[in-house]
Design a protein around this nucleic acid. Structure first.
Length: 491
DNA sequence: TTTTGAGTTGTTCGA
DNA sequence: GTCGAACAACTCAAA
């Protein structure tokens, strides 16, 4: 070995972690390990300004704390120490390069607009200075900047998007976790995770989260294995029933990159699942919706703040503060809505079907701007995702790409009766109604006085009267929508 | 260029 | 009780 080669191998390589908190199927980490160089894994908390990233909401911060602890432990087993830093990405990286003499920086790509901006500028700056900088896939099966319609645009409708995605080359296989990492022995002055104060105190509203969730890569793999070994068998049939554990619950793990869509895709090809073809297809399409949401966000950076369809800009929102508060606290008087909002607050997650019901209620029954709902979900969901959250709220509002028609207004009583017919979901999260019979559970105000008495329900005291009348609210929403269409410039 | 078929998740009304 | 139509056109994506 020449003098030059041996000195080249001595320079460490920096691996940036962001929302890819895993060691398996981590192509940046894998590539770093293959260089044989000492490795410095770094997580930079770059939340000083919204130009760099949308600051994590409270529930995501709780998750992030535990996920970083898990990642740190996994890396230590491999021989590397995770370095925690806080500040602007470029500044921190510059300092690390100066301090260590590292000549290579690797990371996995982000697709949210601030992340893209930050990483694009970082890469060009590093390359300009002769530092080797490379990024890898992992967060998405498709690269939004490569994925185009036949005429060169981006997809605005899900079905053609999905057809094109599945007609393309089979997604790559996952790469394994590195067996070992070459340690870097200098102290890097890592900050202390506890000092970041990511966990809530006084009150500790996340105290029940750990009953449902195990943040980290191991937790993610356990959830996947449990799902593929069980619930996927009834996925097509039961996934809309919130009382049944019929969904994968992988969303927070995906949001933090503790598992990749490549790993999920690969696992779905297992021969043991061959008999569940229909359910597997259905689940794959949900992965597809996550991809589509990122596709939309990548091509519409303001997806979380601006109506995708500008003809909604003139919509007459009511935005009553009391109504918003009642919705957030699960006190609307509509049991299925309240159950959902309380599940969200208690567990940091809400069943997908109920997300649609609660979102529809906020937007159409209360006529509160979808952005206020999006912001609440962003703050309270452990799986809050910049793409899925924004795209889904716009979908419900009717303002999004390939959105639900505006006149599609969920009826909370019907939805409750249809998808929580036995009432187990409502009874779990709205216990004050638990003794009410199925017949009135989704519309307690219709129950005769004696039935309410027997169930211990006193409307207006231990459970609210409905804050709006369904029929009237529906009519008003349709009128507001019709007026918007009349006023919109395109008409 | 034009045409064509299609488009996650619903509700209500009236026959 | 069941069923089909109306609700709104609009625009996308590919042939």
């Amino acid at each position: 070995m020449t003098e030059q080669q041996s000195s080249a191998t001595r320079f460490p390589v920096i691996v940036l972690f962001r929302h890819d908190l895993r060691i398996s199927d981590n192509r940046a980490l894998y590539a770093a390990a293959n260089t044989g160089k000492p490795i410095i894994p770094v997580f930079i908390r770059d939340e000083g300004n919204t130009e760099a990233s949308r600051p994590a909401g409270g529930a995501r911060q709780w998750w992030l704390h535990h996920s970083l602890a898990a990642l740190s432990a996994s890396l230590r087993v491999l021989g590397a120490n995770l370095v925690l830093k806080r500040g602007a990405t470029q500044t921190i990286v510059d300092r690390l390069l100066d301090d260590t003499g590292a000549d290579m920086v690797l990371w996995n790509r982000r697709y949210d607009p601030p992340g893209v901006r930050t990483d694009t500028s970082l890469k060009s700056e590093l390359i300009r200075r002769g530092i080797s900088a490379e990024s890898f896939d992992g967060h998405l099966l498709h690269e939004p900047f490569l994925f185009k319609t036949g005429t060169g645009g981006f997809y605005r409708v899900y079905s053609p998007f999905w057809r094109a995605l599945t007609a393309g080359p089979e997604p790559r296989d996952p790469v394994p976790a590195p067996r070992t990492l070459e340690p870097y022995h200098e102290s890097m002055g890592s900050q202390c995770l506890n000092d970041w104060a990511l966990l809530p105190e006084k009150p500790d509203w996340a105290k029940d989260f750990a009953k449902d969730w195990t943040p980290g890569e191991n937790g993610a793999q356990e959830k996947l294995a449990a799902f593929l070994g069980g619930a996927i068998g009834g996925y097509d049939h039961d996934r809309d029933k919130p009382a049944i554990e019929a969904t994968s619950r992988l969303s927070p793990h995906l949001a933090h990159g503790e598992i990749t869509p490549f790993q999920i895709w690969h696992a779905l090809k297992s021969p043991s699942l061959a008999r569940e073809g229909r359910d597997v297809d259905k689940f794959r399409r949900e992965i597809g919706w996550r991809e589509f949401s990122y596709h939309l966000l990548f091509n519409n950076p303001a997806l979380a703040t601006k109506n995708y369809n500008a003809s909604f800009d003139g919509f007459a929102w009511q935005n009553k503060a009391d109504d918003l508060k009642a919705w957030q606290q699960g006190r609307t008087g509509y049991p299925i809505v309240d159950a959902g909002m309380r599940q969200l607050w208690k567990t940091g997650w809400m069943h997908n079907r109920v997300r649609m019901i609660t979102a529809s209620f906020l937007i159409k029954h209360l006529r509160i701007d979808w952005r206020k709902g999006e912001a609440w979900f962003w703050d309270t969901l452990v799986d809050a995702d910049p793409a899925s959250n924004a795209a889904s709220w716009q979908w419900v509002a009717g303002s999004g790409a390939d959105a639900a028609p505006y006149f599609r207004i969920f009826n909370p009583m019907l939805q409750g009766a249809k998808f929580d017919s036995l009432g187990a979901y409502v009874r779990e999260f709205v216990p004050e109604l638990k003794n009410l019979s199925d017949k009135y559970l989704h519309a307690p105000w219709l129950a005769p006085e004696n039935i309410l008495n027997e169930a211990g329900v006193v409307l207006g005291q231990n459970y609210p009267h409905p804050i709006v009348d369904h029929q009237a609210a529906r009519q008003q929403a349709l009128v507001a929508y019709a007026n918007t269409r009349k006023d919109s410039p395109s008409h």
